[in-house]
Simulated assay, not measured.
Amino acid sequence: MRRRSVLLAVPAGLLALAGCGDDDSDKGEKTSPKPESPSAQPTAKMDGPVPALLGGTKFGERPEVARGVGKGPGKLETKTLVAGRGPVAAKGDYIQVNYLGQIWDTGKVFDTTWDKGRNPFVFRVGAGEVVPGWDKGLEGKKVGSRVELAIPPELGYGPQGRPPVIKGTDIMVFVVDVVGVFNSKSSAHGSKVAQDNKDLPKVGDDTDGKAPAITVPKTKAPKKLVSAYVLEGDGREVKETDTVLLQYRGVLWDGGKEFDSTYASKALAKFNLPELVPGFRDGLKGKKIGSRVLLVMPPELAYGKEARDKIPANSTLVFSVDILAVS
């Protein structure tokens, strides 16, 4: 549930890695990639149109990539280093990846999610949230795949580059591991947790991608925030600085009428947790990734005396929230 009714705009064509490191989940733990001298990144025989891997060749391992040979390609080059067998990332899907990026001719690493404290990166394929080379090169890839990309400037940051790290003439080389794919049919898949409090709403625990039923009791609404597992996932706990990818449904305590749903819109929601209303922010913090959570928010932790679209003033809100991924 956002404080504002419109999404913040993301500049088209920017690798929303778009801040090369801004999705760090542990500000105190962050370690910036150290620039590596050309001598520290030896050249090696080219593996087709892309530089060879010198180490970390398995899916999930931080790769070590050789410097490129020659002036580099003038078009996008892709090579599948490890073929995955999971779901395919189609246009419009959210894809979750780990990646390492470096400059073609120097081998200088400029960004990587394999740094301590970093989350995998999540973006929507084909939506212009990343540089065009990523949209083109990762569409159609399967979960479990490791892909290497060589991206010329016109499919990266263009002639302006991204000073001071990436010049307008630089070819970028990425090794990308596809960790997950999510779409409007995605659900949490955790262990069922008993819902035995008769004074709280009951939420369906089906995982077929359809909107779960929410049954609100004919009792007085709780005065404090309720945050309880319906399905408990096995991922790490959500941190207050995370960006979360969610599937959710919201209804009013009074009458049980639906006022918002990603199931109805057929579009997942990606939110920065600190920007959400207090009930959403505090209710999801500390819950495990992969879970379905019941949230009951008293008015003061939602919109209070302010009416919002289908939400009357002074409404207690009830949500079923699937935490699919964090970034």
Rank of each mutant, 00 (worst) to 15 (best):
22 D>Q: 13
118 R>H: 09
105 D>F: 14
58 K>R: 15
126 G>T: 04
61 E>M: 14
69 V>T: 07
33 P>F: 06
84 G>F: 05
83 A>L: 09
90 A>M: 05
75 K>Y: 14
119 N>I: 02
39 S>R: 13
44 A>L: 00
46 M>N: 10
64 E>V: 12
74 G>H: 11
57 T>K: 15
60 G>V: 10
90 A>L: 05
105 D>M: 13
72 G>M: 06
125 V>L: 13
37 S>W: 08
31 T>L: 10
91 K>H: 15
126 G>M: 04
22 D>Y: 10
48 G>L: 00
40 A>N: 15
96 Q>K: 07
82 V>D: 03
68 G>D: 07
50 V>R: 05
56 G>F: 02
110 F>P: 07
114 W>H: 08
113 T>W: 00
67 R>P: 15
105 D>V: 11
44 A>R: 02
58 K>H: 10
120 P>H: 08
125 V>Q: 03
112 T>Y: 07
27 K>S: 11
99 Y>M: 02
25 S>K: 06
77 E>W: 02
29 E>I: 15
82 V>Q: 05
29 E>W: 08
40 A>S: 11
113 T>D: 00
78 T>W: 08
64 E>H: 13
83 A>C: 09
111 D>G: 06
110 F>I: 12
29 E>S: 14
23 D>W: 00
93 D>R: 05
59 F>S: 03
